[in-house]
C-alpha cells in the first residue's frame, strides 16, 4: 500500500450531490417506520391545506357553472377569494405545528446520532456535508408526506363535494388554472397539489435547518466518548 508523502495538507473536496442523496435516502429507509411517523405530521398539515383549497376551487367552479342553488353556504361565509379568514388561520396554524413537529423530530434524530455525526467528521466529512445530509433527509420526508397529504386532501374534498353536487363535480372539475367569470385567477387543483408538495418540502427543510446546523457544529471528540 502506498504511504502518503509528507506533502502539504490540502483542502477537503466537496462531496458529489448524488452521494449525499444516496446516503440520506439509505438512512431514511433503514429507519422506515420512524420516518413514517415524522412524515405523518406533514401529511396531515398538507392534507388540510389542500382539502380546504380544493374545496374552495370546486365551489367557485360550481358557482360559475350556474349551480348556485346548493352553494348558499359559500355566500354566507365571510369569504375572501374562496377561503374564509377562519380557514386561513387554521391552515396557518396547522402548518406551524408541522414545522415545529419536524424540528422536534430532527432534534431528536440529531441527539440520537451524535456518535454517527462525530464519526463522519472523524472520517473527513465537512460541516456542510452534515448539514446537507440532514436537510436532504428532512426534504425527502417532507416531499413524501406532502404528496400523500395532497392526494388525501384532494380526494377527501372531492368526496365531500360529491355529496353536495353529485357527479357534476367531475364535469366542472377545476383541474387546470383558469380565469373566472369575474376576472379572478383560479389556480386549479393540479397547481394546488403541486404547490402543496413543494410547500411540504420547504416546511420540512425549514424545520430541519436548526437541528442540522447544530449537528454539524458538534465537535468530533464527542464521537470518541463512550457515553452519549
Amino acid at each position: 500500500m502506498v504511504q502518503h508523502d509528507q506533502g502539504q495538507i490540502e483542502q477537503q473536496i466537496e462531496l458529489p450531490f448524488v452521494e449525499s442523496v444516496r446516503i440520506s435516502f439509505q438512512s431514511l429507509m433503514i429507519r422506515f417506520w420512524r420516518s413514517i411517523i415524522t412524515t405523518a405530521g406533514i401529511t396531515l398539515g398538507i392534507a388540510f391545506l389542500v382539502s380546504v383549497w380544493t374545496n374552495s376551487e370546486i365551489g367557485e367552479a360550481m358557482k360559475s357553472s350556474g349551480r348556485t342553488d346548493q352553494i348558499a353556504s359559500f355566500e354566507d361565509e365571510e369569504s375572501t377569494g374562496g377561503i374564509s379568514i377562519k380557514d386561513r388561520w387554521l391552515i396557518l396554524m396547522s402548518l406551524i405545528v408541522c414545522v415545529v413537529g419536524i424540528a422536534n423530530s430532527m432534534l431528536m434524530a440529531v441527539t440520537e446520532r451524535f456518535r454517527e455525526i462525530g464519526t463522519m467528521k472523524c472520517l473527513g466529512a465537512l460541516d456542510r456535508f452534515v448539514v446537507r445530509l440532514f436537510l436532504l433527509e428532512s426534504g425527502f420526508q417532507g416531499l413524501a408526506g406532502a404528496i400523500v397529504g395532497a392526494l388525501i386532501g384532494c380526494i377527501g374534498s372531492i368526496l365531500l363535494n360529491l355529496k353536495d353536487f353529485g357527479l357534476d363535480v367531475f364535469f366542472y372539475f377545476p383541474f387546470f388554472p383558469a380565469v373566472g367569470d369575474d376576472g379572478a385567477v383560479r389556480y386549479g387543483v393540479l397547481l394546488i397539489i403541486l404547490g402543496g408538495c413543494v410547500l411540504g418540502m420547504i416546511l420540512a427543510v425549514i424545520g430541519a435547518a436548526f437541528p442540522a446546523w447544530r449537528a454539524a457544529k458538534l465537535p468530533p471528540a464527542e464521537a470518541m466518548r463512550t457515553e452519549v
Binding site: 490540502e10 483542502q11 473536496i13 472520517l123 473527513g124
Partner: peptide
C-alpha cells in the same frame, strides 16, 4: 477544510 482533509487522509 484542511482539518477535514487531514482527518480523511
Amino acid at each position: 477544510s484542511q482539518i477535514a482533509w487531514f482527518r480523511c487522509h
